[in-house]
Design a protein around this nucleic acid. Sequence first.
RNA 1: CCGCUCUUAGCUCAGCCUGGUAGAGCAGCCGACUGUAGAUCGGCUUGCCCCCCGUUCGAAUCGGGGAGAGCGGACCA
Length: 342
Amino acid sequence: MDTAERKRLITRHTEEVVTEEELEELLSEPNPSIYIGYAPTGEMHIGHFTTIRKLADFLRADLDVTVLIADLHAHLDDEKSPFDLLEARSEYYRTAIEAMVEAAGARSEDIEFVNGTEFELDQPYTLELYRLLADTTISRAQRAGSEVVRQSENPKLGGLAYTLMQSLDVAALDADIAYGGIDQRGIYMLAREILPEHGHDKPLCLFAPLLSGLSGGKMSASEAGSGVRLSDDPETVSEKINGAYCPQGEVEDNGVLEYLQHLVFPILEEAGESFVIERPEQYGGDIVYEEYGSLEADFVAGELHPQDLKGATGETIAEIIAPIRARFETEPELLDRAYPDE
RNA sequence: CCGCUCUUAGCUCAGCCUGGUAGAGCAGCCGACUGUAGAUCGGCUUGCCCCCCGUUCGAAUCGGGGAGAGCGGACCA
């Protein structure tokens, strides 16, 4: 596989590469590596899946892929996860991520998993962390983490340590590329700024798009109806899609279209399938789309009605998450232990 | 260590002074209207009023004790 093809695989369906030149250069070196970190907090949803799907592309492009289960981070961020649940949630996250990778057509054994507590408590790491703490202003760290760390009237120090630790993780895991949702941009830009000052390599960054919530705002793990959970059954998926904010002809803040663009079509494309919308004769009969662009064009032109679109979208998404959902039906205790109060 | 403030619906808070067992906004749910959703209109749900003890016929409200949170001061001879 040539460099151009590898680059295409790595960057397709992403939001931003920092920088393309650096990526091309990196791909000429042996064994380039990429990592993504997840703080095991709320239950995973299809937004996570859009991001994790890409790991299959990275493997195809012959990158070394590491997934960090950032257990400490889950607690440092305003104690989103109680300390006592870190282990259970880490286990759930790892299983869910493995299932997503498998569903994306790759082998989860090809990915290296590491928990934060396996190295973030070691002396070299903590010493380096203290040096970063000594060298970074509060406002700089706050700004970098503002899209990731929970903001509150009385912010804890943990949120600031979180940001520096995530920056340091890139170096500690020896990753050439830091990958994550575009919300992580602030933190990794900080990493690019401060890691070289402390004798580490400047990481490349690759960002995935974030999906809007179905009610118009950002998708949130804590807001039950705002996104499709991986554990939702087909009926629930359809209900959520049917209830989504989806103004006719409008693309802005339209969660349904975003799901199609960033999740459904990329998967169909990979599988060589097309998107079939069943539609009553009175509204024009069934219609088939091969790619997202023409669907959006029809939608904007008013030739595709939201209700027809929602039906097909719900069904397709339910099929997409079916294998992941099945994984947890065989081991329901994974979810029960991770979220005992739900 | 000392002082002050706060704790009431999922969230933000009002009510407390002048006791009569609780309200608003937002959220949520259900209808109407749109071939979806939203918006709009109509309707509805929800509470250990932080805990314990006391006063009282009656305590969210008054008194005492305690817990949690926030802020400030002091200590730095």
